[in-house]
Simulated assay, not measured.
Amino acid sequence: MGLLIGIDGGGTKTIGYMVNTSGETIARERTGSLNIHSQGIQKVEENFCNLISILLNENCYTIDDIDLISLGVAGIGREEDRLIFENILEKVKVKNKVLLSTDVQIALVGANGNAEGIFVLSGTGSIAYGIDSMGQEYRAGGWGHILGDEGSGYDIGRNALATLVKVVDGREQNTSLTKEIIKKLNWEKATDVIGYVHHPHRTKADIARITPVVQYCADCGDDVSTRILQEAAESLCELSKTLIRKMPQGGSLTIKVGGGVLENVSIVYDHYVECIKKQYKYVEVSKSLHPPVVGALILGFKRLGISFDSFDFYNGKKVGGEKK
């Protein structure tokens, strides 16, 4: 039938695009995360099947009409985790139609337009990931919120809450950040933080959603909030520097960045660029060309033997690309 599904199975949500081989977008849909560590196998299977069913059924297609599902998934960086996810695909009878990648692989491809370069992500979590001209992969970070995720939305939110409890103790100066957090989360008092963070259904995404509060306070001149955001940028810079040292260098280098924090929080982005340029003047930093789901589509087109120049997946109009 000439249809391709691209899926960005991130840590907090999943986005799917269905396109034809001319690059025209037929459908877009969202569902829950496909991370087996945070969701569990049964929930991941449910989310995946729901996404595929909606994309197909609402457009009167069947799985037989699909040439390929190009899927990038969080939490399958280790071989044993990848095998677990492959078992899910086999169980739902689509394994032979799936090109399986990690979420950060499709993010890099979307960011650069091809499978080469450096990509730094700061969303709910964080990671620096690179592929050199020989296809060798490099990474720093990506260890999850308990062991890492430095400079992420979760990290910013957690540090904001940690600052709040220091204010309660008298170890930190009280600023507008405390009042704005209480207001945002509909608390009566600052000590409600205990019940909030220990709620059985609390997620790392919930903590990450405190980031806009920190951004608002920083934009209003709150020094504590500005410091939290700048420290996040410096953490991301350290991840990036580690990758730069690991990867072979040849002339100029561009780092593409993505994720809600680096794309939307200007203080983090600007301070991050400043930190990188201070040590590596030849390095350029810019935001991603395309979102990760388009990276999945690019890899899918490559697997199908269709050249990718530039498709306007957002408006469903073909801009380039032809069958080889």
Rank of each mutant, 00 (worst) to 15 (best):
S70I: 06
I156V: 13
T124A: 11
I63G: 02
E284M: 14
L304K: 07
Y17N: 02
V214E: 01
Y17R: 11
A232P: 06
I207D: 00
F313A: 02
K318V: 06
G320S: 15
L177T: 07
E263Y: 10
L297T: 02
C49D: 12
A107E: 12
D206A: 01
Q136T: 15
D222Y: 02
Y196H: 09
G113F: 12
L253M: 15
E263T: 14
I66T: 05
V283W: 11
N264Q: 15
G300P: 01
Y17V: 03
D192R: 00
H37E: 04
V213I: 07
E24M: 06
L304Q: 02
I106N: 08
S240A: 14
S307M: 00
Y282D: 15
K97S: 12
A107C: 14
E172R: 07
G258L: 11
G110M: 11
E29T: 00
S240K: 05
G130P: 08
T203A: 00
I36Q: 08
L4T: 05
Q230L: 02
I118M: 13
G258D: 10
L56E: 10
I63S: 10
Q249P: 00
L161Y: 02
L121T: 09
T191A: 05
V293Y: 00
N174D: 11
T254S: 07
K179P: 00
D149P: 05
C60M: 06
R158P: 03
P291I: 01
L229A: 11
T203M: 05
I36E: 04
I182T: 07
A205R: 09
G10N: 07
S225H: 01
K277Q: 15
T226H: 02
T12N: 09
Q249K: 13
L164Y: 04
D103A: 13
G195A: 03
V261G: 07
L71I: 03
S33Q: 06
N50I: 04
D219A: 01
V294T: 10
G170K: 08
V98G: 10
K189T: 06
G320M: 08
R202Q: 13
R158N: 13
G258P: 05
K97F: 12
V165I: 14
G110N: 11
V285Q: 09
D149R: 10
N59M: 08
